[in-house]
Write a protein that binds this DNA or RNA. Structure first.
Lengths: 397, 397
DNA sequence: CCTATAAACTCGTGCCACGAGCATAAACAA
DNA sequence: TTGTTTATGCTCGTGGCACGAGTTTATAGG
């Protein structure tokens, strides 16, 4: 039966304990630099409750307050900050060319502490270097590090890399990134996490349902619902590039036929130009943008590719019904470079009823930092729960 | 500022009030017929809390208890039921041939109270007949009816039908279905709601992320995350049939080119057989299943169609990463009738790393009742919130 | 009939947020 | 300067909710 004294405390029992506190901390993430009065108003807290909650959070080293610049009459309020001794998360981003390691406090803004180009792209090498950086971060901050979150330019499943065209990896276990068995490790695809960041802080901030699509080597992205990426059962969601929207005769390195991937990145541009397949589709695509300014053949190839991208994107809009679409990586310059072809294909691919007011298609604004922001956000989602805060409080004197 | 006395009570303030109660009512939905002791154990409530919560819920006519069959020694417990005077939701399902109107209590199981074939498929006619049935249900139950939820065989957006191949409708406003301005009306696509029901009560019950795909006239379905359909910004999500996975030369009635819809339903079978496009693809497809037993040409056509379906489904699995896939409508008999072609195409379309353990593809188990169950579930999601229960409690003496 | 057992009931406690009143710190006006 | 206005923080009594320990109740088995 429900034995309340059996050590395992009731789940519901502790709920109330963190309700107000969590709401305040969420607000701190949403609007860093907000004042106490502001937060209280937004959450509908009385000044009494605000006093009590902030006092409790200060006591637990979760929150600090500094005098706010006076805005007018009345007693000056304070600005809420993450506590200087409060919990942290480590976010790392492993990209094609380099890796970065950042630390974020409860406001969720990652601060890069180390960044290095890959000396060698061997998995063991890279993982070893990043793991060392994570360990250094943890050494510096000790028990303040509550989670490690990794964004990887790879298809990720249940915390492992299963393949990566960008890095040339096959199956790679990322578990060594965890600096300690007690520190949870979260792993996600970089495009998925960048989408999460766009949906939370970036161009799609505030949208209930946003779709992020990016082209690097192939297509990635994610649907973001209420700030959380829809990552699927094993975390491998968002692999839109492996919908068979491309030429059914082409085999993708993933093993399937006709993947959209092959129709929209640098490989597609090369194919249209009759050039050999580039070993680095990203820089090839980048170069094609410049060549197009002088070479009409390249311009035409980009037009074809933009059309294939617009057509597929329209299908995704039909299927997923986002309120906003954000484009990252090569996707944004591509649609600018071949705007006519992209727009025509997008419009033609939309179901008729959507055409009068299609979702806005915006450029992602976080650029290369998106994945890092997303990784930090996902890690904080993990920390800012009843269990997470309970563990933090329990570990303090 | 946050004025606590301005009538509008703080949002957070009321939170605690319903926490335990909501947990119990959710459990009632999840496991109707569970005993009080069972529920308390599962939620980690002490017997004292259980006593208090059930008493409060009984007081509010939300819950009734009846003696449970004794299972062994000890004081007998009670079975929890929806209260006989408790809140209700009305769920309606408007299908191609007929409509049904059902009433569901807090356990979420709809009981059909009226069902009728369409006398005439004119929108005004159909909506009028269904609205009258809803009004009758509300007349019978008065203020107990807290929400009306409609499943429609149509593309739905922001509570309106925007098009329906099955019903032959264009834009149709469903607002007349609401029996009273105070009773909220929720509208959803039938395939989306059937998917929600499969994810909650059916073949995918318990799966965190499930994908439901159904073929009727075209392809519909939804991704279900934690029992809730991912319906998009305007509720029009799940239109997987309008991904351009089909023949790019074919124009879909939706206005786009190459829709998957045209490659997998009865229209595709007819095209492969060189027969004229059927006016009712559903019954045509049904008939084709029978013809295939004798006619190898039909069998071959079904094989082609099953291949197109398997290929597209593999793409959806790649993109959305469901833990389980459920098939409804024509999809399940199709994959049985052409299992070899379907399996081969599905397997070939999956990314290589998924092939060792692909998500199970199961037959939907709720059949024709799925949409009704889903509609009831969505309506209850609306009622079983702090606001919903608060409004119920406020409306009682 | 007595005992064991499981579950419901009772009641004192603690926690959290509310809400009203008081205190405080600035800006402004005389 | 000095009082007034205004916005805010602080104090403290109150109420709701769940906990937890102890008590009661209803059944099965000996």
């Amino acid at each position: 039966m429900a034995s309340p004294a059996d050590g395992g405390r009731s789940v519901r029992a502790r709920d109330a304990r963190w309700r107000g506190a969590l709401a305040v901390l969420e607000e701190l993430r949403r609007r860093p630099g907000a004042t106490r009065a502001d937060v209280a108003q937004r959450l509908g807290l009385t000044t009494g409750s605000a006093t009590e909650i902030t006092a409790r959070l200060r006591e637990l080293a979760l929150l600090a307050e500094t005098p706010a610049a006076a805005t007018g009459r009345g007693r000056p309020t304070t600005v809420l900050h993450p506590h200087p001794d409060g919990p942290l998360v480590v976010a790392v981003d492993i990209r094609q060319e380099d890796w970065r390691c950042a630390v974020a406090a409860l406001d969720g803004r990652p601060h890069v502490v180390e960044a290095r180009a890959h000396a060698d792209r061997e998995p063991a090498q890279v993982i070893g270097a990043v793991a060392a950086a994570v360990r250094r971060a943890r050494k510096r901050h000790g028990g303040r590090v509550r989670a490690v979150s990794a964004a990887v330019a790879a298809t990720v499943r249940d915390g492992r890399v299963v393949q990566s065209a960008a890095l040339g990896w096959d199956a790679v276990d990322l578990a060594p990134l965890a600096p300690h068995p007690d520190v949870p490790l979260l792993v996600g695809n970089d495009a998925t996490l960048a989408g999460a960041a766009e949906g939370r802080y970036g161009a799609a901030a505030g949208a209930g349902t946003a779709l992020h699509v990016t082209i690097e080597v192939g297509v990635g992205g994610t649907l973001v619902v209420d700030g959380r990426p829809v990552a699927g059962a094993s975390g491998a969601g968002g692999e839109f590039g492996h919908l068979p929207l491309g030429d059914p005769a082409l085999r993708c390195p993933c093993g399937a036929l006709g993947c959209w991937d092959l129709a929209v990145d640098g490989r597609a541009v090369a194919r249209h130009l009759g050039e050999p397949q580039p070993c680095d589709p990203r820089s090839y695509a980048q170069a094609a943008l410049e060549r197009a300014e002088r070479d009409p053949a390249v311009r035409s190839a980009l037009g074809h590719v933009a059309g294939a991208f617009g057509r597929g994107l329209a299908g995704l809009i039909n299927a997923l019904d986002p309120g906003v679409v954000t484009l990252g990586g090569f996707a944004e310059p591509l649609r600018v470079a071949a705007a006519a072809e992209f727009d025509a294909a997008l419009r033609a691919g939309l179901m008729r009823f959507r055409r009068p007011d299609p979702p806005p298609v915006l450029a992602a604004v976080l650029g290369g930092d998106g994945a890092l922001h997303g990784a930090a956000a996902v890690a904080l989602d993990h920390v800012l729960t009843e269990e997470g805060l309970g563990a933090w409080a329990a570990g303090r004197p």
